[in-house]
Design a protein around this nucleic acid. Structure first.
Lengths: 207, 207
DNA sequence: GAGGTTATTGATCGCATGATCAATAAGATC
DNA sequence: GATCTTATTGATCATGCGATCAATAACCTC
Protein backbone atom coordinates (compact mmCIF):
# COMPACT_ATOMS: atom_id res chain seq x y z
CA UNK A 1 0.00 0.00 0.00
CA UNK A 2 1.16 3.45 -0.83
CA UNK A 3 1.28 6.14 1.76
CA UNK A 4 -1.97 7.95 2.44
CA UNK A 5 -1.89 11.11 0.35
CA UNK A 6 -1.89 14.40 2.14
CA UNK A 7 -5.31 15.64 3.01
CA UNK A 8 -4.37 19.05 4.27
CA UNK A 9 -3.93 21.80 1.75
CA UNK A 10 -1.66 24.31 3.27
CA UNK A 11 -2.31 27.82 2.03
CA UNK A 12 -0.07 30.84 2.12
CA UNK A 13 -0.79 33.17 5.02
CA UNK A 14 -1.84 35.85 2.58
CA UNK A 15 -4.35 33.62 0.83
CA UNK A 16 -5.73 32.22 4.06
CA UNK A 17 -6.11 35.63 5.62
CA UNK A 18 -7.96 36.81 2.55
CA UNK A 19 -10.16 33.74 2.66
CA UNK A 20 -11.05 34.40 6.27
CA UNK A 21 -11.82 38.00 5.50
CA UNK A 22 -14.11 37.07 2.65
CA UNK A 23 -15.92 34.48 4.73
CA UNK A 24 -16.49 37.06 7.44
CA UNK A 25 -17.86 39.51 4.90
CA UNK A 26 -20.24 36.95 3.45
CA UNK A 27 -21.49 36.00 6.89
CA UNK A 28 -22.01 39.63 7.83
CA UNK A 29 -24.02 40.32 4.69
CA UNK A 30 -26.29 37.34 5.21
CA UNK A 31 -26.56 37.13 9.01
CA UNK A 32 -25.35 40.48 10.26
CA UNK A 33 -22.27 41.39 12.27
CA UNK A 34 -23.53 39.39 15.24
CA UNK A 35 -23.18 36.31 13.03
CA UNK A 36 -19.42 36.72 12.68
CA UNK A 37 -18.30 34.08 15.13
CA UNK A 38 -15.11 32.09 15.38
CA UNK A 39 -16.86 28.85 14.55
CA UNK A 40 -19.09 30.29 11.84
CA UNK A 41 -16.11 31.69 9.95
CA UNK A 42 -14.15 28.47 10.41
CA UNK A 43 -17.03 26.28 9.27
CA UNK A 44 -17.64 28.38 6.17
CA UNK A 45 -14.14 27.78 4.84
CA UNK A 46 -13.80 24.29 6.25
CA UNK A 47 -11.06 24.79 8.80
CA UNK A 48 -10.75 24.64 12.54
CA UNK A 49 -11.58 27.49 14.84
CA UNK A 50 -8.00 27.38 16.02
CA UNK A 51 -6.82 28.40 12.59
CA UNK A 52 -9.08 31.42 12.51
CA UNK A 53 -7.79 32.31 15.95
CA UNK A 54 -4.27 31.94 14.61
CA UNK A 55 -4.88 34.57 11.96
CA UNK A 56 -7.20 36.78 13.96
CA UNK A 57 -6.36 36.53 17.66
CA UNK A 58 -9.10 39.02 18.49
CA UNK A 59 -12.60 38.49 17.16
CA UNK A 60 -13.62 42.08 17.85
CA UNK A 61 -10.97 43.15 15.41
CA UNK A 62 -12.21 40.82 12.69
CA UNK A 63 -15.69 42.24 13.12
CA UNK A 64 -14.57 45.84 12.86
CA UNK A 65 -12.33 45.12 9.86
CA UNK A 66 -15.15 43.29 8.14
CA UNK A 67 -17.50 46.18 8.72
CA UNK A 68 -14.98 48.62 7.33
CA UNK A 69 -14.41 46.59 4.19
CA UNK A 70 -18.10 46.11 3.55
CA UNK A 71 -18.85 49.81 3.82
CA UNK A 72 -15.82 50.80 1.76
CA UNK A 73 -17.07 48.44 -0.93
CA UNK A 74 -20.55 49.91 -0.58
CA UNK A 75 -19.32 53.41 -1.20
CA UNK A 76 -17.35 52.23 -4.20
CA UNK A 77 -20.32 50.43 -5.71
CA UNK A 78 -22.66 53.33 -5.21
CA UNK A 79 -20.11 55.71 -6.67
CA UNK A 80 -19.81 53.50 -9.73
CA UNK A 81 -23.56 53.28 -10.14
CA UNK A 82 -23.93 57.03 -9.90
CA UNK A 83 -21.18 57.73 -12.37
CA UNK A 84 -23.48 56.98 -15.27
CA UNK A 85 -25.57 60.07 -14.54
CA UNK A 86 -24.82 63.09 -16.70
CA UNK A 87 -25.89 65.64 -14.11
CA UNK A 88 -25.61 66.08 -10.38
CA UNK A 89 -29.38 65.96 -10.14
CA UNK A 90 -29.41 62.65 -11.95
CA UNK A 91 -26.65 61.40 -9.70
CA UNK A 92 -28.64 62.35 -6.62
CA UNK A 93 -31.66 60.58 -8.07
CA UNK A 94 -29.62 57.45 -8.63
CA UNK A 95 -28.10 57.69 -5.19
CA UNK A 96 -31.47 57.81 -3.49
CA UNK A 97 -32.87 55.03 -5.62
CA UNK A 98 -29.88 52.83 -4.91
CA UNK A 99 -29.48 53.49 -1.21
CA UNK A 100 -33.13 52.89 -0.45
CA UNK A 101 -33.51 50.01 -2.83
CA UNK A 102 -34.18 46.45 -1.74
CA UNK A 103 -30.81 45.28 -2.99
CA UNK A 104 -28.99 47.02 -0.19
CA UNK A 105 -31.01 45.70 2.71
CA UNK A 106 -28.18 43.42 3.69
CA UNK A 107 -25.83 46.37 4.05
CA UNK A 108 -28.46 48.17 6.12
CA UNK A 109 -28.42 45.23 8.49
CA UNK A 110 -24.67 45.56 8.81
CA UNK A 111 -24.99 49.24 9.69
CA UNK A 112 -27.66 48.51 12.28
CA UNK A 113 -25.60 45.82 13.91
CA UNK A 114 -22.61 48.12 13.85
CA UNK A 115 -24.38 50.88 15.76
CA UNK A 116 -25.73 48.32 18.20
CA UNK A 117 -22.52 46.33 18.62
CA UNK A 118 -20.35 49.44 18.66
CA UNK A 119 -21.15 49.98 22.31
CA UNK A 120 -19.29 46.84 23.33
CA UNK A 121 -16.70 46.69 20.56
CA UNK A 122 -14.49 49.75 20.82
CA UNK A 123 -12.57 49.03 17.63
CA UNK A 124 -15.85 48.70 15.78
CA UNK A 125 -17.13 51.99 17.17
CA UNK A 126 -14.05 53.76 15.89
CA UNK A 127 -14.39 52.16 12.47
CA UNK A 128 -18.07 53.11 12.29
CA UNK A 129 -17.14 56.71 12.96
CA UNK A 130 -14.54 56.59 10.20
CA UNK A 131 -16.92 55.09 7.66
CA UNK A 132 -19.64 57.59 8.52
CA UNK A 133 -17.16 60.35 7.84
CA UNK A 134 -16.26 58.69 4.57
CA UNK A 135 -19.89 58.58 3.51
CA UNK A 136 -20.42 62.17 4.50
CA UNK A 137 -17.34 63.23 2.55
CA UNK A 138 -18.67 61.37 -0.46
CA UNK A 139 -21.99 63.20 -0.25
CA UNK A 140 -20.24 66.51 0.26
CA UNK A 141 -18.37 65.92 -2.96
CA UNK A 142 -21.55 65.13 -4.81
CA UNK A 143 -23.35 68.19 -3.47
CA UNK A 144 -20.41 70.48 -4.17
CA UNK A 145 -20.36 69.21 -7.72
CA UNK A 146 -24.04 70.04 -8.06
CA UNK A 147 -23.45 73.53 -6.72
CA UNK A 148 -20.54 74.11 -9.07
CA UNK A 149 -22.71 73.07 -12.00
CA UNK A 150 -25.38 75.48 -10.88
CA UNK A 151 -27.89 72.70 -10.25
CA UNK A 152 -27.97 72.86 -6.46
CA UNK A 153 -28.21 75.86 -4.21
CA UNK A 154 -26.90 74.96 -0.79
CA UNK A 155 -25.74 77.22 2.03
CA UNK A 156 -24.06 74.69 4.32
CA UNK A 157 -22.97 71.67 2.32
CA UNK A 158 -21.64 69.67 5.25
CA UNK A 159 -24.90 70.11 7.12
CA UNK A 160 -27.05 68.98 4.24
CA UNK A 161 -24.86 65.93 3.77
CA UNK A 162 -25.42 64.89 7.38
CA UNK A 163 -29.13 65.55 7.08
CA UNK A 164 -29.45 63.34 4.03
CA UNK A 165 -27.39 60.59 5.63
CA UNK A 166 -29.54 60.86 8.71
CA UNK A 167 -32.85 60.40 7.00
CA UNK A 168 -31.51 57.69 4.71
CA UNK A 169 -30.17 55.69 7.63
CA UNK A 170 -33.29 56.29 9.67
CA UNK A 171 -35.68 55.21 6.96
CA UNK A 172 -33.55 52.20 6.12
CA UNK A 173 -33.64 51.21 9.76
CA UNK A 174 -37.38 51.53 9.69
CA UNK A 175 -37.55 49.35 6.61
CA UNK A 176 -35.89 46.53 8.52
CA UNK A 177 -39.15 46.02 10.33
CA UNK A 178 -41.74 47.75 8.18
CA UNK A 179 -41.59 46.03 4.84
CA UNK A 180 -42.93 46.84 1.47
CA UNK A 181 -42.84 50.58 1.03
CA UNK A 182 -39.55 51.06 -0.76
CA UNK A 183 -41.15 53.44 -3.25
CA UNK A 184 -42.77 55.49 -0.53
CA UNK A 185 -39.51 55.82 1.36
CA UNK A 186 -37.64 57.04 -1.67
CA UNK A 187 -40.32 59.66 -2.02
CA UNK A 188 -39.79 60.79 1.57
CA UNK A 189 -36.10 61.29 0.96
CA UNK A 190 -36.64 62.97 -2.40
CA UNK A 191 -38.89 65.64 -0.96
CA UNK A 192 -36.38 66.55 1.70
CA UNK A 193 -33.47 66.37 -0.68
CA UNK A 194 -35.22 68.75 -3.07
CA UNK A 195 -35.80 71.23 -0.28
CA UNK A 196 -32.28 71.01 1.07
CA UNK A 197 -30.60 71.16 -2.31
CA UNK A 198 -32.64 74.11 -3.51
CA UNK A 199 -34.31 72.12 -6.26
CA UNK A 200 -37.83 72.56 -7.59
CA UNK A 201 -40.41 70.16 -6.22
CA UNK A 202 -40.40 66.98 -8.28
CA UNK A 203 -36.92 67.58 -9.65
CA UNK A 204 -35.74 64.29 -8.18
CA UNK A 205 -38.80 62.27 -9.16
CA UNK A 206 -38.26 59.07 -11.06
CA UNK A 207 -37.59 59.76 -14.70
CA UNK B 1 -33.83 25.01 69.46
CA UNK B 2 -36.57 26.75 67.63
CA UNK B 3 -37.29 25.97 64.04
CA UNK B 4 -35.15 27.75 61.47
CA UNK B 5 -37.10 30.83 60.34
CA UNK B 6 -38.26 30.97 56.76
CA UNK B 7 -35.75 32.46 54.42
CA UNK B 8 -37.85 32.56 51.34
CA UNK B 9 -40.18 35.47 50.78
CA UNK B 10 -42.94 34.25 48.63
CA UNK B 11 -44.48 36.98 46.49
CA UNK B 12 -47.82 37.05 44.77
CA UNK B 13 -47.64 36.17 41.08
CA UNK B 14 -48.75 39.68 40.20
CA UNK B 15 -46.00 41.33 42.23
CA UNK B 16 -43.34 38.95 41.02
CA UNK B 17 -44.34 39.36 37.39
CA UNK B 18 -44.19 43.12 37.81
CA UNK B 19 -40.79 42.83 39.47
CA UNK B 20 -39.46 40.78 36.59
CA UNK B 21 -40.83 43.24 34.09
CA UNK B 22 -39.20 46.16 35.86
CA UNK B 23 -35.87 44.38 36.10
CA UNK B 24 -35.99 43.67 32.39
CA UNK B 25 -36.75 47.32 31.66
CA UNK B 26 -33.87 48.53 33.81
CA UNK B 27 -31.48 46.12 32.16
CA UNK B 28 -32.61 47.17 28.70
CA UNK B 29 -32.12 50.85 29.49
CA UNK B 30 -28.62 50.33 30.82
CA UNK B 31 -27.30 47.48 28.68
CA UNK B 32 -29.65 47.32 25.70
CA UNK B 33 -32.12 44.65 24.67
CA UNK B 34 -29.31 42.18 24.10
CA UNK B 35 -28.64 42.40 27.83
CA UNK B 36 -32.04 40.97 28.74
CA UNK B 37 -31.05 37.44 29.56
CA UNK B 38 -32.62 34.85 31.81
CA UNK B 39 -29.75 34.99 34.25
CA UNK B 40 -29.33 38.76 34.19
CA UNK B 41 -32.98 39.33 35.08
CA UNK B 42 -32.86 36.65 37.78
CA UNK B 43 -29.67 38.03 39.31
CA UNK B 44 -31.03 41.57 39.42
CA UNK B 45 -33.96 40.62 41.62
CA UNK B 46 -32.11 37.92 43.52
CA UNK B 47 -33.96 34.83 42.36
CA UNK B 48 -33.19 31.75 40.35
CA UNK B 49 -33.35 31.58 36.61
CA UNK B 50 -35.95 28.88 36.96
CA UNK B 51 -38.33 31.36 38.55
CA UNK B 52 -37.98 33.79 35.69
CA UNK B 53 -38.60 30.91 33.33
CA UNK B 54 -41.68 30.05 35.37
CA UNK B 55 -43.18 33.48 34.77
CA UNK B 56 -41.85 34.01 31.28
CA UNK B 57 -41.47 30.67 29.52
CA UNK B 58 -40.21 32.42 26.41
CA UNK B 59 -37.39 34.93 26.63
CA UNK B 60 -38.16 36.38 23.22
CA UNK B 61 -41.52 37.41 24.57
CA UNK B 62 -40.05 39.13 27.60
CA UNK B 63 -37.76 41.10 25.33
CA UNK B 64 -40.55 42.24 23.05
CA UNK B 65 -42.82 43.13 25.96
CA UNK B 66 -40.04 45.07 27.62
CA UNK B 67 -39.38 46.99 24.43
CA UNK B 68 -43.06 47.82 24.07
CA UNK B 69 -43.34 49.10 27.63
CA UNK B 70 -40.22 51.22 27.37
CA UNK B 71 -41.37 52.90 24.19
CA UNK B 72 -44.90 53.40 25.48
CA UNK B 73 -43.42 55.10 28.52
CA UNK B 74 -41.19 57.14 26.25
CA UNK B 75 -44.12 58.47 24.27
CA UNK B 76 -45.96 59.31 27.47
CA UNK B 77 -43.00 61.17 28.93
CA UNK B 78 -42.38 63.16 25.79
CA UNK B 79 -46.07 63.98 25.52
CA UNK B 80 -46.05 65.26 29.08
CA UNK B 81 -42.95 67.34 28.49
CA UNK B 82 -44.45 68.88 25.38
CA UNK B 83 -47.72 69.69 27.03
CA UNK B 84 -46.22 72.74 28.69
CA UNK B 85 -45.85 74.49 25.34
CA UNK B 86 -48.55 76.99 24.49
CA UNK B 87 -48.24 76.62 20.74
CA UNK B 88 -47.71 73.81 18.28
CA UNK B 89 -44.47 75.45 17.22
CA UNK B 90 -43.29 75.48 20.81
CA UNK B 91 -44.33 71.88 21.19
CA UNK B 92 -42.35 70.92 18.12
CA UNK B 93 -39.36 72.79 19.50
CA UNK B 94 -39.62 70.92 22.77
CA UNK B 95 -40.09 67.62 20.98
CA UNK B 96 -36.91 68.05 18.98
CA UNK B 97 -34.94 69.24 21.98
CA UNK B 98 -36.13 66.29 24.03
CA UNK B 99 -35.79 63.55 21.48
CA UNK B 100 -32.27 64.53 20.50
CA UNK B 101 -31.15 65.34 24.00
CA UNK B 102 -28.53 63.34 25.88
CA UNK B 103 -31.07 62.15 28.43
CA UNK B 104 -32.69 59.83 25.94
CA UNK B 105 -29.59 58.09 24.68
CA UNK B 106 -30.52 54.97 26.62
CA UNK B 107 -33.83 54.76 24.79
CA UNK B 108 -32.01 55.22 21.50
CA UNK B 109 -29.95 52.19 22.35
CA UNK B 110 -33.13 50.22 22.91
CA UNK B 111 -34.47 51.23 19.51
CA UNK B 112 -31.21 50.28 17.82
CA UNK B 113 -31.13 46.88 19.47
CA UNK B 114 -34.78 46.41 18.55
CA UNK B 115 -34.16 46.97 14.85
CA UNK B 116 -31.14 44.71 14.99
CA UNK B 117 -32.69 41.98 17.12
CA UNK B 118 -36.02 42.17 15.32
CA UNK B 119 -34.65 40.00 12.55
CA UNK B 120 -34.38 36.99 14.83
CA UNK B 121 -37.17 37.76 17.28
CA UNK B 122 -40.45 37.74 15.40
CA UNK B 123 -42.53 38.92 18.34
CA UNK B 124 -40.14 41.83 18.80
CA UNK B 125 -40.34 42.75 15.14
CA UNK B 126 -44.11 42.94 15.38
CA UNK B 127 -43.92 45.06 18.51
CA UNK B 128 -41.42 47.41 16.90
CA UNK B 129 -43.80 47.93 14.02
CA UNK B 130 -46.61 48.70 16.42
CA UNK B 131 -44.59 51.20 18.42
CA UNK B 132 -43.34 52.91 15.28
CA UNK B 133 -46.95 53.35 14.25
CA UNK B 134 -47.74 54.73 17.68
CA UNK B 135 -44.96 57.28 17.41
CA UNK B 136 -46.05 58.27 13.95
CA UNK B 137 -49.65 58.67 15.10
CA UNK B 138 -48.43 60.86 17.93
CA UNK B 139 -46.54 63.08 15.52
CA UNK B 140 -49.49 63.21 13.15
CA UNK B 141 -51.61 64.49 16.00
CA UNK B 142 -49.08 67.16 16.84
CA UNK B 143 -48.77 68.28 13.24
CA UNK B 144 -52.51 68.30 12.69
CA UNK B 145 -52.86 70.45 15.76
CA UNK B 146 -50.34 72.89 14.33
CA UNK B 147 -52.20 73.00 11.03
CA UNK B 148 -55.52 73.60 12.77
CA UNK B 149 -53.98 76.47 14.68
CA UNK B 150 -52.71 77.95 11.47
CA UNK B 151 -49.08 77.58 12.54
CA UNK B 152 -48.07 74.77 10.18
CA UNK B 153 -48.77 74.41 6.50
CA UNK B 154 -48.47 70.77 5.53
CA UNK B 155 -49.80 68.99 2.47
CA UNK B 156 -49.32 65.35 3.51
CA UNK B 157 -49.25 65.11 7.29
CA UNK B 158 -48.57 61.37 7.45
CA UNK B 159 -45.59 61.75 5.13
CA UNK B 160 -44.03 64.57 7.11
CA UNK B 161 -44.45 62.57 10.31
CA UNK B 162 -42.51 59.66 8.83
CA UNK B 163 -39.86 62.02 7.50
CA UNK B 164 -39.31 63.58 10.90
CA UNK B 165 -39.21 60.21 12.61
CA UNK B 166 -36.74 59.03 10.01
CA UNK B 167 -34.24 61.79 10.48
CA UNK B 168 -34.61 61.77 14.25
CA UNK B 169 -33.94 58.05 14.42
CA UNK B 170 -31.13 58.28 11.92
CA UNK B 171 -29.33 61.09 13.70
CA UNK B 172 -29.81 59.43 17.06
CA UNK B 173 -28.29 56.28 15.65
CA UNK B 174 -25.36 58.33 14.44
CA UNK B 175 -24.97 59.86 17.89
CA UNK B 176 -24.44 56.40 19.33
CA UNK B 177 -21.01 56.41 17.79
CA UNK B 178 -20.30 60.07 17.04
CA UNK B 179 -20.47 61.81 20.34
CA UNK B 180 -20.68 65.41 21.37
CA UNK B 181 -22.70 67.25 18.77
CA UNK B 182 -26.16 67.21 20.35
CA UNK B 183 -26.67 70.88 19.55
CA UNK B 184 -25.63 70.45 15.97
CA UNK B 185 -27.96 67.54 15.49
CA UNK B 186 -30.94 69.41 16.83
CA UNK B 187 -30.14 72.09 14.32
CA UNK B 188 -30.16 69.57 11.51
CA UNK B 189 -33.63 68.40 12.46
CA UNK B 190 -34.92 71.91 13.00
CA UNK B 191 -34.01 73.04 9.51
CA UNK B 192 -35.81 70.14 7.94
CA UNK B 193 -38.78 70.44 10.25
CA UNK B 194 -39.16 74.11 9.37
CA UNK B 195 -39.17 73.29 5.69
CA UNK B 196 -41.60 70.42 6.00
CA UNK B 197 -43.98 72.23 8.32
CA UNK B 198 -44.08 75.36 6.22
CA UNK B 199 -42.43 77.48 8.91
CA UNK B 200 -40.11 80.41 8.42
CA UNK B 201 -36.41 79.67 8.75
CA UNK B 202 -35.39 79.92 12.39
CA UNK B 203 -38.93 79.50 13.67
CA UNK B 204 -37.87 76.43 15.63
CA UNK B 205 -34.60 77.87 16.91
CA UNK B 206 -33.94 77.67 20.59
CA UNK B 207 -35.79 80.41 22.44
C1' DG C 1 -53.49 22.38 62.96
C1' DA C 2 -54.14 19.40 58.86
C1' DG C 3 -54.08 19.47 53.92
C1' DG C 4 -53.55 21.31 49.49
C1' DT C 5 -51.92 24.68 46.14
C1' DT C 6 -48.01 26.64 43.98
C1' DA C 7 -44.11 29.89 44.27
C1' DT C 8 -39.44 28.82 44.43
C1' DT C 9 -35.30 26.27 44.30
C1' DG C 10 -31.42 23.26 42.70
C1' DA C 11 -29.64 20.32 39.61
C1' DT C 12 -28.90 19.41 35.07
C1' DC C 13 -29.06 19.25 30.01
C1' DG C 14 -27.54 20.84 25.36
C1' DC C 15 -25.63 24.18 22.91
C1' DA C 16 -22.70 28.20 21.64
C1' DT C 17 -19.24 31.44 22.53
C1' DG C 18 -13.84 32.96 22.64
C1' DA C 19 -9.46 31.38 23.78
C1' DT C 20 -5.18 28.60 24.64
C1' DC C 21 -1.63 24.99 23.83
C1' DA C 22 0.78 21.06 22.65
C1' DA C 23 1.16 18.01 18.72
C1' DT C 24 1.32 17.25 13.81
C1' DA C 25 2.60 17.54 9.13
C1' DA C 26 3.04 20.43 4.80
C1' DG C 27 6.15 22.79 2.27
C1' DA C 28 10.23 25.60 1.75
C1' DT C 29 15.31 25.78 2.31
C1' DC C 30 19.69 24.06 1.98
C1' DG D 1 17.06 13.86 1.18
C1' DA D 2 17.70 16.00 5.80
C1' DT D 3 16.21 20.09 8.31
C1' DC D 4 13.57 23.77 9.78
C1' DT D 5 9.72 26.83 9.77
C1' DT D 6 4.96 27.26 10.53
C1' DA D 7 0.23 26.37 8.88
C1' DT D 8 -3.07 23.44 10.78
C1' DT D 9 -5.28 20.41 13.87
C1' DG D 10 -7.46 18.41 18.12
C1' DA D 11 -8.32 18.62 22.68
C1' DT D 12 -9.74 21.32 26.27
C1' DC D 13 -11.04 25.20 29.32
C1' DA D 14 -14.13 28.67 31.25
C1' DT D 15 -18.14 31.07 30.43
C1' DG D 16 -22.63 32.12 28.93
C1' DC D 17 -27.16 31.06 27.05
C1' DG D 18 -32.33 29.04 27.28
C1' DA D 19 -34.88 25.38 29.00
C1' DT D 20 -36.75 21.44 31.79
C1' DC D 21 -38.10 18.82 35.98
C1' DA D 22 -38.40 16.90 40.33
C1' DA D 23 -38.16 18.43 45.07
C1' DT D 24 -39.14 21.77 48.56
C1' DA D 25 -41.45 24.92 51.46
C1' DA D 26 -44.34 29.10 51.94
C1' DC D 27 -48.89 30.46 52.23
C1' DC D 28 -54.01 29.81 51.87
C1' DT D 29 -58.11 27.23 53.02
C1' DC D 30 -60.84 24.53 55.78
Amino acid sequence: MSTVPSRIRRKSPTDRAAEIGQAAREIALSDGLYGITLRAVAARIGVTGSLVSHYQPNMDLLVSETFGEIVATEIGEVAAEIDAADSATGAMQALIDTLLGPKRSNVTVVWLDAWSLGRRNKALAAEVGRQMDAWQAFLVGLINDGCARGEFRVADVATVAWQLLGIIDGLNSHATVRYGDARTQRGLVRTIAEHELGLAAGALDAR
